[in-house]
Design a protein around this nucleic acid. Structure first.
Lengths: 256, 256
DNA sequence: CGTCTCGTTCGGACGGGCCGAACGAGTGTT
DNA sequence: AACACTCGTTCGGCCCGTCCGAACGAGACG
């Protein structure tokens, strides 16, 4: 519980400002100089200089009097996820899984104690999605996250869970002991459920991706509304398909 | 010392350094402090401070004694391309096109005088690809780029073409007048060919995406080896499919 | 024509980022 | 076991780069 001691010595303020500007633009789709200066509490001239620099580097682009994110980030993002063997390994297999189940599917890896979706496959039923590539989610409130936690080494799990278990819905597991019990169950049977623990009305089935039965690479899941995800289908058939896909992906990730 | 001359006034050096480091990591998959300091001509301590800052922000992650790109860039990249209506409009349609043609397909937009692939669909024949999401290409040496140049407004075309027309293969159109003539042809018939002008052995067929017959949003293409892309198929049938898809995408991009 | 607000430029001041040297930890060699 | 080399990290100090506020020019609106 260190209180934000990240203002450590030797920290580059200008870099923080630049990325603050970038994130502001991301959250607003496009921003102008004054707006950024106000929101970030910096002077207009400073904001201007940063934007000019970022534009020169190609990371932001001007559109009239506003700035938007440049596509150079697309390249960086692609490299970031290409590092993960899990990404390549899951592409074809996830598409098949989603087709078989008929619900949305996603691939997650962990970074800084949170889950990040690195691949997502939409299903036929074009459900408006709140999550997209690059979205980060709480590990304890998702089937992918719980799958990950159940199978990562204990040390890492402690580190991650020592944070707060935010309650996102009434069904979110906010109690540490209850979560550990749930993880034990998941570890035993090999897959995880998510019953409206992150979004009311949504269920999911997830499974971990293990490389050579030692290290965990991430997790996959399929998710859909409670109206369709129910009964034997939800409790037995889907888990079977998900774990099967996870096994294949794990093998493909190991040998590539 | 370093008289780049490119040092515009009011430019933030620390930001340039930070992104220089990020790009170094991108190009090497992962880098250490000393390696970065050497390659960028900065001191170890400076490199260290930048990396510490970037890690604190979540844009790079430590793996042992090296740093790799963080998945936060994935989120930024996704936002950058989500801005383009062309992205959403082309997703389903491009998949259908690729399936029909049986060759790789890509969607391009222009940024800073270069073409950037914002979407790519692989074909059955898993041809190892040099290009990926976020790749930038010369506009004059690709079917997408030529389609774009042929249909963008004249002012913008002049600006872009006043640069050098780099010859990438023996067939690249390196002469300005020859290129203008080619663009006139493309403008007339509505689609573009690329006959080994960027990569020897590769051909492509591209077409522009116009929103409401006024502004150009980008271009699409399908590409494959000369062994398969030939004859009537290449010269007539594929262009028909590509232009048809382009028309549909243009309409979908306009009304969304 | 006045009065907003926008982005841009300028000069000055202060603090922050830069470097080089020294430290500590890890690795492989003799 | 001790060496020599590497790595990443820390520390101190100098100087430049970065920040701010004020002023300027360009549009938009009434």
């Amino acid at each position: 519980m260190d209180m934000d001691g990240r203002d450590a010595a030797g920290s580059i303020g200008a870099t923080k400002t630049s990325f603050g500007i970038v994130e502001h633009i991301r959250d607003h789709d496009a921003s102008g100089v004054s707006e950024i200066a106000n929101d970030l509490g910096i002077s207009k001239s400073t904001a201007h200089n940063h934007l000019k620099t970022l534009a020169g580097l190609g990371y932001v682009v001007r559109q009239g009097d506003e700035y938007a994110l440049g596509l150079k980030f697309l390249d960086l993002g692609d490299h970031a996820r290409t590092r993960h063997a899990l990404y390549h390994a899951s592409i074809g297999e996830m598409d098949d899984l989603v087709e078989a189940v008929g619900e949305r599917g996603q691939v997650m890896v962990e970074e800084n104690g949170r889950g990040v979706y690195i691949y997502q496959v939409k299903s036929e039923q074009g459900l408006q999605t709140d999550s997209h590539i690059g979205t980060t989610v709480d590990l304890h409130a998702t089937s992918v996250g719980k799958s990950y936690l159940a199978f990562c080494d204990e040390k890492r799990r402690k580190e991650i869970l020592d944070g707060e278990l935010t309650r996102l819905t009434t069904k979110t597991i906010g109690d540490r002991d209850a979560l550990e019990a749930e993880l034990a169950t998941i570890r035993e049977r090999g897959y995880a459920f998510n019953d409206e623990e992150r979004i009311t009305g949504m269920r999911a089935v997830g499974a971990p991706i293990l490389s050579d039965d030692e290290t965990i690479l991430g997790a996959i899941s399929v998710s859909g509304p409670t109206t369709r995800m129910k009964g034997e289908w939800y409790h037995t058939e889907v888990p079977e398909m998900v774990t099967q896909a996870a096994r294949v992906i794990g093998i493909r990730a190991t040998y590539s």
